[in-house]
Amino acid sequence: MTALMSLTNVSKNFGGLAVITDVSFDVPAGARMALIGPNGAGKTTIFNLISGVYQPSAGEIRLEGQEISAIPSRERIGLGIARSFQNIRLMPHLSVLENVMLGQQARAGNLGNMLSPLRRSRWRREAEELLEQMGLDTYPGEVVATLPYGIRKKIEVVRALVAKPKLLMLDEPAAGLNNTETANLKDFLMQIAATGVTLLVVEHDMSLVRSLCDHAVVLNFGEKIYDGPTAEVQKDPDVLEAYLGTRHAGKETTDVA
């Protein structure tokens, strides 16, 4: 099986603090994969390592077999890695449409495109059409800072999607959404996956994880504690302990004793 993305013995320290320790996992092409774990487990850090915001302290990160650690962060979206952010990072002073058009940059960054007006361009039409498909066409000209949270969350996904990535990484896409919105999001992500896009999703909503993802990697304190089918993740003793803290608490008492 060919892995689209693979991490091999990846570690990340901030000063003396080990945030990711020796983590390895593969994201198979076409997978709908979840990356889960308790707060502070290191999920967002993994995204930051893959997208190049941080450099790994050790280990290798490969996209289709190619080591990407030396590739500048801005070039990675062109290689097919796009992401959304846990705390929405849309450009507050840009309109919805402009935010989406920014997501096209990796495909539209040559000098000719840079210096031609966006109005009436094919890029603008493409962004408008995508927003319409997503039911977000009520707001194209609106500055995003003024829009409701759920809408902005969706726009971030659209901005990542318009880069036509191979791997779409979403950091807690359902956070702050109600049940209906979450159900819509799930359908939407299933549609995206059906077009051949590989998903890597960080999510705390376990029912969304179960219904959306076929595979899960679980992190706890920066270490991988589970890597397998989503259906069995909640039966795994290590995972249960990580979330409920039973053995961890027990271990502490034995350590003290």
Partner: peptide
Amino acid sequence: STRFGLTMRAAHDDEVVTDLMGV
């Protein structure tokens, strides 16, 4: 009104994310 102008304004708002968008 060009993409150059768009990326200028994007860089003003958030340099890290603008970079990750390929700018």
